[in-house]
Design a protein around this nucleic acid. Structure first.
Length: 653
DNA sequence: CGGCCTCGCGCG
DNA sequence: AAAGCGCGCGAGGCCG
C-alpha cells in the first residue's frame, strides 16, 4: 500500500460487535458522534449506478477516529443521520447520498462535498478522492481497482471483489475503506482553511468576503438541492419514444442507401477517414479547414458540418451525410439512449455536476439533459418525450437574455441598461441604437418587421409583405446579435466576417460601431483583461474566482485564450450565480410542501418543474418572483423570465 | 480486448 | 500564423 503518513488505528465493527453486552460499544460511539459536527462518510458499493447500487461496507471518520463497517450496521446510527446540525463530509457527496438513500437512509444535516471545495480552488486539477489526497495531503494511495484487483468490468464485479477481500484480506479492506472517510475528512479540513483564507471581491462583500463564504453559503446547500433533483428524475414517455423510433430508423436506412448510391461504393458514413478519401482524393474538394491533429499532430482536412454544409448543393452526398449525422445522433443518443436509462417508474435520473464547469455552471451527465435538441431543430421532437407525472403539468421557466443583462450590469452601460429598463428585446434595441438610427429606423419598426417575418412564415401574410425595409430590419437584428454574443466570447473580426459573409474590414467596422454605441461595454472588455493581468484571476458577481495563469503568457494563442476566458467568465459565471441563487431561493421557499411543485431540471438559464395542474397558476408567480430577484438586492438591470406550462417539455405554452 | 484519444455535434 | 465561451456523448481509430 505504501502509506507514507501516520494514521490512527482503523476500527472494524460488525453489528453484533456494536450491540453486544447491552450496546457497550455502540452507546459511547453514539455519544461521541452526537457531540461532533463534522463527520465524514464513504461507501463501498455494488457499483456506480445512482439508482440501483447499494452499499456493502461504509466508513466514517471524525477527529482522529476512522472506522469501517458492514452496511448492516447503518440501522444502528439512524438517530445520528437524523441530526439536523451535522455537517456530513463526502468526496462526491451526491453519489454517496444516493447510495444511502437506495437502502432507505436520508441525512438531515448539511452535506459538504470536498470535491466541490477542491474545484473552487484548483479548477485545473482532477477532483477524484485519490487525486485530491495526493495533491492536498501528499498521500500515496492505491485506487480501488489496483487495491482489490478488479480485472473484469462485468455486472457485479465490484461486489465480488469486495466480498473476496472481506474473506481473504479483511485488514486490507478495513484500511482502504476507513481511509476513504479519513482522507476525505483531512482533505476537507485543509481545504476549509484554504477557502477561508482566500479573500475575494463580491458585489455583496458583507455576505461574501472569502471563498469560504462562497462555499459554505452557496455551494454546500446547493449540493443538497441538486441531489433532490437527481433523486426525483423526470418521467419519460416510453411509448412516445417507441413511436418516433420506427420512422427515424426507417429514414436512416433510406439515407444510408442514398449515401452508398451517391458515393458509388459502400462506405461508413461515420468514418472521417473514409469521407476524407472521397471528398479530397476522389472529388478533389478544397479543404475549408484542418483538424487539430492529436498525439501524432497530423492535421487532416476536416469533414465537419461547415464543410458538408458548404458543399450541400453542389454535392448531394454532402447533403445526405448531413441528414445522416442528424438522424443517427438523434436515434443513438436520445431515442435509444433515453429508453435505456429509464428506471422502473419510467423516470430518468440525470446527474448535475457541480465540480466540472470552470465558470460555475452545472454540467449534466448520465444522461446529459442539457443538450437535448430543441423542438425547432428536431423533426422527431424528442423533447415531447419528457412529461410530468400523472395529474401534473411541466412548468418551463426561461431567463430572457440573461447573459446580455449581466453584461449590461457588469459594464454599467447606461444606454444598454435603459433598453432593459424599458422592457425591450435587447437585440432589437441594439439594432436600433447601432444601425437603425442612421437610416431612421426605430425600435417599433424593427419589432414590426420581426412580426411580419413570423406571419409570412406561418402563411398568415403573403411573401410580398417582406419588403426591402423589413429585410433590412431583420438583418440588423441578426447581425447585432451575432456581434453581441461573439464579443462576449472574445470573437475577432475574421470569424465575424465569415459568419456574416462580409469582408474583414466590414466586420471590423461593425464591431467598432457597436463598441462606439456602448462605450462602457467596450471599457468593460478592456478592464476585465487588465484586472486579470494584475491579479491573475477574474471573478463573478458573488465573487467566485477563476484563475487565468496564461494571461501573461508569451505565447499569443495562450494569452488570447486566457483573455477570452477572463471576459466570458464574468458573464457566463455571473449568469450561473443568478440561476444558482434562484434555485437556492426556490428550494428554501418549499414549493413542494406548498404547491406539490418540484424542481426537476436546470439547463443553464432554464428551470423545469413538475406541478399538480390545480396549483400551477398559484406556483407560477412565486417562481417568477424568486427567479427575478435572486439576490439580497437587485442588480442594476432587471431580470425577466418567461413562464410556460403544459403536458410536455415540447408542449409548454 | 480495453483504454484512451479525436472528431463531430447537441445544448446554453 | 494562429483567434468564439462552457459542457457530454457516441463512434471510429489507434495502441498496448
Amino acid at each position: 500500500m505504501g502509506w507514507n503518513v501516520h494514521l490512527p488505528k482503523a476500527e472494524w465493527y460488525r453489528p453484533e460487535d456494536l450491540t453486544a453486552n447491552g450496546c457497550a460499544l455502540l452507546t459511547p460511539l453514539l455519544n461521541e458522534l452526537k457531540a461532533t459536527r463534522d463527520v465524514s462518510i464513504d461507501t463501498e458499493t455494488t457499483g456506480l449506478n445512482i439508482v440501483k447500487d447499494i452499499p456493502l461496507f461504509w466508513s466514517m471518520a471524525w477527529g482522529e477516529r476512522r472506522m469501517c463497517m458492514p452496511a448492516a450496521t447503518m440501522n444502528l446510527f439512524r438517530e445520528i443521520f437524523a441530526d439536523e446540525d451535522k455537517r456530513w463530509i463526502f468526496a462526491n457527496a451526491k453519489y454517496d447520498m444516493h447510495i444511502l438513500n437506495n437502502v432507505g437512509f436520508t441525512l438531515e444535516g448539511s452535506c459538504c462535498d470536498s470535491a466541490v471545495m477542491h474545484a473552487l480552488l484548483y479548477e485545473e486539477q482532477p477532483h477524484g478522492l485519490k487525486d485530491m489526497a495526493r495533491e492536498v495531503l501528499g498521500w500515496k494511495w492505491t485506487d480501488f481497482k489496483n487495491t482489490f484487483g478488479l480485472s473484469e468490468k462485468k455486472e457485479g464485479a465490484v461486489a465480488e471483489a469486495l466480498f473476496r477481500a472481506e474473506k481473504e484480506n479483511l485488514q486490507l479492506l478495513i484500511e482502504y475503506a476507513a481511509n476513504d472517510a479519513y482522507g476525505t475528512l483531512k482533505i476537507y479540513e485543509k481545504l476549509k482553511k484554504e477557502l477561508e483564507d482566500t479573500n475575494t471581491y463580491s458585489l455583496y462583500p458583507s455576505e461574501f468576503a472569502t471563498m469560504g463564504d462562497i462555499f459554505f453559503k452557496t455551494e454546500m446547500p446547493y449540493t443538497k438541492v441538486l441531489w433532490g433533483m437527481e433523486r426525483k428524475g423526470i418521467t419519460i414517455d416510453r411509448q412516445y419514444l417507441k413511436d418516433i423510433e420506427g420512422p427515424c430508423q426507417a429514414r436512416i436506412k433510406e439515407v444510408e442507401r442514398d449515401i452508398v448510391r451517391l458515393a458509388g461504393r459502400p462506405i461508413n458514413p461515420n468514418s472521417p477517414l473514409q469521407l476524407r478519401d472521397i471528398f479530397f482524393n476522389e472529388l478533389k474538394c478544397r479543404p475549408l479547414k484542418y483538424t487539430k491533429g492529436g498525439k501524432s499532430g497530423t492535421k487532416a482536412p476536416s469533414v465537419d458540418y461547415d464543410f458538408l454544409h458548404y458543399y450541400r448543393n453542389e454535392i448531394p452526398l454532402a447533403a445526405a451525410l448531413l441528414e445522416h449525422r442528424d438522424l443517427t445522433k438523434l436515434d443513438g443518443t436520445y431515442i435509444q439512449g433515453l429508453q435505456n436509462r429509464v428506471d422502473s417508474a419510467n423516470r430518468i435520473h440525470s446527474r448535475f455536476n457541480q465540480d466540472v464547469a470552470r465558470t460555475g455552471r452545472l454540467s449534466s451527465s448520465d444522461p446529459n439533459l442539457q443538450n437535448v435538441p430543441t423542438t425547432e431543430n428536431d423533426k422527431f421532437k424528442v423533447r415531447g418525450a419528457f412529461i410530468p407525472q400523472d395529474g401534473c403539468d411541466l412548468i418551463v421557466v426561461d431567463y430572457a437574455a440573461l447573459e446580455m443583462r449581466l453584461l449590461a450590469a457588469a459594464a454599467m452601460d447606461p444606454l444598454m441598461i435603459q433598453i432593459f429598463l424599458d422592457g425591450k428585446d435587447i437585440h432589437m434595441g441594439n439594432a436600433e441604437m447601432v444601425f437603425g438610427r442612421k437610416v431612421g429606423m426605430d425600435y417599433e419598426e424593427i419589432k414590426a418587421a420581426k412580426k411580419i417575418d413570423g406571419k409570412v412564415k406561418q402563411g398568415e401574410l403573403p411573401p410580398e409583405a417582406m419588403t426591402d425595409r423589413v429585410h433590412m430590419a431583420l438583418q440588423f437584428r441578426q447581425r447585432i446579435k451575432t456581434i453581441a454574443f461573439g464579443l462576449n466570447y472574445g470573437m475577432r473580426e475574421n470569424k465575424l466576417a465569415r459568419d456574416l459573409g462580409i469582408t474583414k474590414d466590414e466586420a471590423l467596422a461593425l464591431m467598432e460601431e457597436y463598441m462606439a454605441t456602448y462605450p462602457a461595454v467596450s471599457q468593460f472588455y478592456e478592464s476585465a483583461i487588465k484586472e486579470t493581468e494584475q491579479t491573475g484571476y477574474s471573478f463573478t458577481i458573488i465573487g467566485r474566482r477563476r484563475y487565468h495563469p496564461e494571461i501573461l503568457s508569451n505565447r499569443d494563442m495562450e494569452r488570447f485564450g486566457a483573455q477570452r476566458q477572463a471576459v466570458n467568465n464574468q458573464i457566463q459565471g455571473g449568469a450561473a450565480d443568478v440561476v444558482r441563487f434562484a434555485q437556492l431561493g426556490i428550494d428554501a421557499a418549499c414549493l413542494e410542501e406548498r404547491f406539490g411543485c418540484r424542481m426537476l431540471l436546470q439547463v443553464h438559464d432554464e428551470l423545469v418543474f413538475e406541478c399538480p395542474k390545480e396549483t400551477v397558476e398559484e406556483a407560477k408567480p412565486v417562481i417568477r418572483q424568486l427567479m427575478e430577484h435572486p439576490f439580497f438586492t437587485d442588480l442594476a438591470v432587471p431580470l425577466d423570465v418567461s413562464l410556460a406550462s403544459g403536458p410536455s417539455w415540447m408542449n409548454a405554452k
